[in-house]
């Protein structure tokens, strides 16, 4: 098994395993954490495919933006503290064994093959090409994305503002 292929399988297992956790867990907080892990795995898959810019954007937009928003949703719809408590305590050995296993596997695979100047990395970074393409060939799409974002900004603000108006009218009645 080639080195790149091993990392591909590792990160795809991480992605799919975390998705399965979202499917089965009943705790919303666990689900958000599993989604974080899954999205990180997807970012790693992007990098393995040679799309380094996309990997960075995935981390910035998804984990910095979407995930924080989802967390806000979880906090906002918080109902009873029992839903966020762990009913079955895990053994402490699990917390030590699993990370050790991961580190061991990764090191055994990675150390002998440290000069990994192979497959996707023989081509230069995609940053410059991507920027040039956005501002030349894909410029109309770029503009439309900006317009879409403006519409979403106004739309989401308008939907949210109905809440504020209701609160105000309630306050006046009281």
């Amino acid at each position: 098994m080639s080195n790149i292929l091993f990392f591909f399988i590792f990160f795809s297992v991480q992605t799919i395993g975390s998705a399965v956790v979202i499917l089965f867990t009943r705790n919303v907080m666990y689900a958000v954490t599993a989604l974080l892990s899954s999205l990180l795995g997807v970012a790693a898959l992007f990098v393995l495919a040679g799309a380094d810019v996309l990997g960075v954007i995935q981390i910035i937009v998804y984990i910095g933006g979407v995930l924080v928003l989802t967390l806000f949703g979880v906090m906002y719809t918080y109902q009873s503290p029992k839903r966020y408590q762990e009913s079955i305590p895990h053994k402490k050995s699990v917390f030590i064994l699993i990370p050790l296993l991961f580190v061991l596997v990764l090191l055994v695979q990675a150390l002998p093959l440290l000069p990994m100047i192979d497959d996707p990395y023989q081509h230069a970074s995609k940053v410059e090409v991507t920027g040039m393409l956005w501002l030349t060939e894909y410029l109309p799409i770029f503009e439309w994305i900006g317009f879409l974002l403006l519409v979403v900004l106004i739309g989401a603000g308008w939907i949210g503002s109905t809440l504020v108006q209701e609160d105000k009218s309630k306050g006046e009645q009281v």
């Binding site: 799309a51 956005w134 739309g155």
Partner: peptide, 27 residues
């Protein structure tokens, strides 16, 4: 880089979808 450009669009759409969906969930 057509596929990567498309993926960038998908990421933007996903962010928009999350924002609007969250506003709806709040209401």
């Amino acid at each position: 880089l057509s596929g990567q450009m498309m993926t960038l669009l998908i990421i933007v759409i996903a962010a928009c979808e999350a924002v609007v969906a969250l506003a709806i969930i709040m209401v």
